[in-house]
């Protein structure tokens, strides 16, 4: 009898570098022996495993995966706490990439707005890296990034470079701000929704969104006011994607596994999904 192999086998990812970002967020760079992860697309995720502790789904944060992969990790749970105890040269397990990321092929030839809230910047970064690497394929490009406090800003240095480029319009907002290294005009006190109002977005924009669950509803409202259609709004959803391969059931939403059908969904595709607290669908059918 021919036996097939387990789909749960991680490959070893050796930690190449650990860069502290703001507060409890570190950027980990892993190097693997195979090229399984090299095919990562913006918005996809991997299962990160710390042996003896467990796995957790982490968005791919780099848009130009070559021989290494970058993951932005916030210390919030058992697995991430254990990861934060590791050093360069140690290994963790990586499985993936899984899910449908942002449909970059569909975005080509069009204007694109990226909206990130808090840690949602991680998958959005993979998207902007891809877009800027293929800049000529896209129309106008806008990046909106909101956070609670300016101290929480992630990828500060990279954003500085983006601000200097003329081919991407960057809006940064914080509910509360202290002294900021960035030019003062770039950072505003406010929310992502205020930035959307300011930005020159109209109906012919594709919009990619990732942020905390409570953010989506307000962002969608603002986009609707700008006549962006449901077909052009793309949400990256967070659920407990435990197995990543459409088996364990933890990420099930509506009639699908988020880990396989998502994590990036077209808003039009989520229209009739109950339990979607991000869109306030509730029972609206």
């Amino acid at each position: 009898m021919m036996q097939i192999s387990t789909p749960f086998m991680p490959e070893k990812g050796v930690i190449r570098s650990i860069v502290p970002m703001a507060q409890d967020n570190y950027l980990f760079e892993f190097k693997t022996d195979t090229d399984r992860l090299a095919a990562c697309k913006p918005g996809q995720f991997v299962e990160l495993w710390v042996p003896g502790v467990g796995e957790c789904p982490i968005s791919v944060c780099s848009g130009r995966v070559t021989e290494s992969i970058q993951l932005l990790v916030r210390r919030v749970g058992r697995v991430t706490n254990a990861l934060f105890q590791m050093s360069e040269g140690d290994w963790a397990g990586l499985r993936g990439p899984y899910g449908h990321g942002f449909p970059v092929e569909r975005y080509k030839g069009q204007n694109l707005c990226m909206v990130a809230g808090g840690l949602g910047i991680a998958p959005i970064r993979s998207l902007w890296q891809y877009v800027l690497d293929h800049r000529q394929d896209f129309g106008k490009v806008i990046l909106i990034y909101g956070m609670r406090h300016s101290d929480e800003m992630l990828f500060r240095e990279e954003l500085k470079l983006l601000l200097q480029r003329g081919d991407i319009h960057v809006f940064l907002a914080a509910d509360d701000a202290t002294v900021c290294e960035l030019p003062p005009f770039a950072m505003q006190v406010g929310r992502v929704t205020d930035m959307i109002r300011q930005a020159a977005i109209d109906h012919d924009f594709q919009v990619a969104i990732c942020g905390p669950p409570v953010m989506y509803k307000y962002v969608i409202e603002e986009l609707k006011a700008k006549h962006v259609t449901d077909q052009n709004i793309w949400l990256s959803l967070e659920r407990q994607m435990k197995c990543g391969i459409g088996k364990c059931g933890h990420c099930f939403i509506g009639g699908r596994f988020t880990c396989q059908a998502g994590p990036v969904f077209q808003l039009a595709d989520l229209k009739f999904v109950p339990e979607l607290i991000e869109c306030d669908n509730g029972g609206a059918q």
């Binding site: 710390v50 003896g52 502790v53 467990g54 058992r78 706490n81 254990a82 105890q85």
Partner: peptide
Amino acid sequence: TASLLKDHLPY
């Protein structure tokens, strides 16, 4: 105990 010896929060 095994988790704690590794300084990991136990499950």
